[in-house]
């Protein structure tokens, strides 16, 4: 592994911390976008700049996750008038601590992996796991619908990072399919988030509690 790749991976881990510790949703979205840009660069570094396949994956990732998805998300922010994560279920300090613990655990986990997973070095697997944990942490502890979408995206970034070294052995159509699915997914989620904001005057998912089993649902005639 080259020094440049290592620097990029450290950047990915630092962005995980940025994501969990920021209360401003624009910062959260930007952290995800920069992370996606770093991962696109890594795809080129690891697969070699002479492969068309690597350029296609890196280019697709950069265009969709580096630019298109952040654009869709920022538009959703503006249209729903959301600025900040009001009150996360876990304080920012505690989230930061958990993320740091998760990063440490990721290194321990990566060091225990069998040989095959370390084809590209320990750091890549550790960064991938840390990013996956960060995504899950955001999904569980945040209450704004938009933060949950970013949580899903960060989780996906981690998985994609883990798969970088394997992706080149898969048909291009599968990789493009994965990217397209994520993009359309965020697009559909954006529409639903917008409708949640319009219906409930807020994008707090804690407002979504009508569907339960205990009480008989109230129905309009």
């Amino acid at each position: 592994m080259t020094g440049a790749a290592a620097a990029l991976l450290v950047g990915v881990i630092l962005l995980d911390f940025t994501a969990v510790s920021s209360s401003r949703l624009t910062v959260l979205i930007r952290a995800f976008a920069v992370q996606a840009v770093l991962i696109s660069a890594l795809a080129l570094l690891l697969d070699g700049v002479d492969s068309i396949h690597a350029w296609a994956v890196a280019g697709g990732n950069l265009a969709l996750k580096g630019f298109a998805i952040p654009y869709v998300m920022n538009r959703a922010l503006v249209r729903t008038g959301t600025r900040k994560e009001a009150e996360p279920l876990l304080s920012y300090g505690a989230s930061m601590l958990l993320a740091a613990a998760a990063a440490g655990f990721s290194f321990a986990l990566a060091a225990r992996l069998p040989e095959e997973a370390r084809r590209e070095g320990l750091l890549l697997a550790a960064a991938a796991f840390a990013t996956m944990f960060t995504g899950l942490l955001l999904l569980v502890t945040r209450s704004k619908a938009i933060s949950e979408v970013v949580g899903y995206l960060v989780l996906e970034n981690g998985i994609f990072l883990f798969g970088l070294t394997l992706l080149k052995r898969q048909p291009l159509i599968v990789e493009m399919g994965i990217l397209l699915d994520v993009f359309v997914g965020v697009f559909v989620m954006g529409i639903v988030v917008y409708n949640i904001a319009r219906t409930f005057d807020d994008v707090d998912v804690r407002a979504l509690t009508a569907l339960r089993d205990e009480a008989l649902p109230e129905e309009e005639p």
Binding site: L155, T199, A210
Partner: peptide, 24 residues
């Protein structure tokens, strides 16, 4: 309706996260 909105949101986010794990 607000109810179908809630259902669609849970469906999207839970299944997308689930399927992301299947990608791993």
């Amino acid at each position: 309706s607000p109810r179908s909105l809630e259902a669609a949101w849970k469906y999207l986010i839970l299944c997308s996260v689930g399927i992301a794990l299947a990608l791993a």
